[in-house]
Design a protein around this nucleic acid. Structure first.
Lengths: 119, 119
DNA sequence: TGGTCATTTCGCCACAGAACGAATTATAGT
DNA sequence: ACTATAATTCGTTCTGTGGCGAAATGACCA
């Protein structure tokens, strides 16, 4: 019950949903997510903490970078069910398409270059 | 997308989740829901408006009473999928059992009597 | 050891939303 | 028509959360 509501809360913000959709089938670095959603790094980091606590994402640190990915089969069932619900509910339209093309462009750029703070 | 987040928001409050669980397989009057969750009628009414706008519940008015029920097959797919997700995620434990027995007691009382304001 | 840089944590502000009681609306009964 | 009452809407208060920039953390490099 408590856990269910926590997961629902995690899914009840459009930025977090955009991130989860972007993470479908791939892992992404924080700086790539920052570029995708166009918010401050601290804000994105906070969002990722929310997703982590709901067991919707996992991450690994590689040097200075943190790569986030969706949780796998070892995650709680409610998290997997939530991701299935998300994927089955989202239709590709409006903002989603924009994100998809934007993400494609981001993936073109090497991470080392993308993360340069100046830009 | 927008719609998905709205549904997720509707599910991200424990009172609303309790109500949706109570509504599984039956319709309930507002005064019964008030009795169940123990909140002010105005608060419950607002919760029901949120659930309505997310297309998770429907209602019919019978005289002074308003009977709420879960939406049926004619509702948006995302709403039905959300309810399926809810049902599959909730396990009967802790607060849920309390609600179940409490609801059983409430159902014993005729609505006309239950809605008497004095009590 | 010191400097740079990606990420997170902290402190703050602004707004969304959950709660209540009071006022309003609508229906039933007299 | 008047009263009673179930439900909703309104106005208010308070807590929770999203946003940012600044400071702290931790890793790499020189």
């Amino acid at each position: 019950m408590r856990e269910f509501v926590d997961v629902a809360k995690a899914l009840s913000d459009s930025t977090r949903v955009r991130i989860l959709i972007a993470l479908k089938g791939r892992e992404l670095c924080v700086c790539q997510l920052v570029e995708l959603v166009g918010l401050a790094a601290s804000t994105v980091s906070k969002h990722m903490a929310v997703l982590r606590h709901a067991y919707l994402v996992d991450f690994r640190k590689e040097g200075r970078w943190a790569y986030y990915r969706r949780v796998g089969r070892d995650a709680p069932k409610r998290a997997q069910a939530a991701l299935r619900w998300l994927d089955s509910s989202i239709e590709m339209k409006k903002g989603m398409v924009d994100d998809a093309t934007r993400l494609a462009m981001i993936l073109e750029i090497p991470v080392e270059e993308l993360c340069r703070t100046e830009k």
